[in-house]
Amino acid sequence: MIAYYMCFGLFFVGLYGVITRRNLVKIAISLSIMEISTFLFFALIGYIDNGVAPIVNPADPDKIYVDPLPQTLVLTAIVIGLATTALLMAVIIRLYRKYKTFDIREINELRG
């Protein structure tokens, strides 16, 4: 059970980073930490005690396998996470070009 709580701990570590950090790249890293915590959670809920990797062995069909569905979901989510992180980094590089800084306090044209 402790592992599930640690997933949540990791999620809040990421959330703390997003809220308190001032550097754009550090915010992106914190978002990635949150992302990883959700993936870890998915990997954990598919685990079954004494289960083996779900590769079918025709000789021994009665083995206990872990649940393969969350693993496929995590793979899909990782692909999506790759795309979002890449886009976020591209926007950060462009922002650095325009403002010459990574400090979020100086990037405040939009308000009201």
Binding site: V79, L82, A86, M89, A90, I93, R94, R97
Partner: peptide, 21 residues
């Protein structure tokens, strides 16, 4: 598709960096 797109991500980030300001 994945090989090409990961490569494109890398290339675009370098292109953004190399573009002369």
């Amino acid at each position: 598709e994945v090989a090409a797109s990961v490569f494109i991500i890398f290339l675009s980030l370098i292109i953004f960096k190399e573009e002369s300001p």
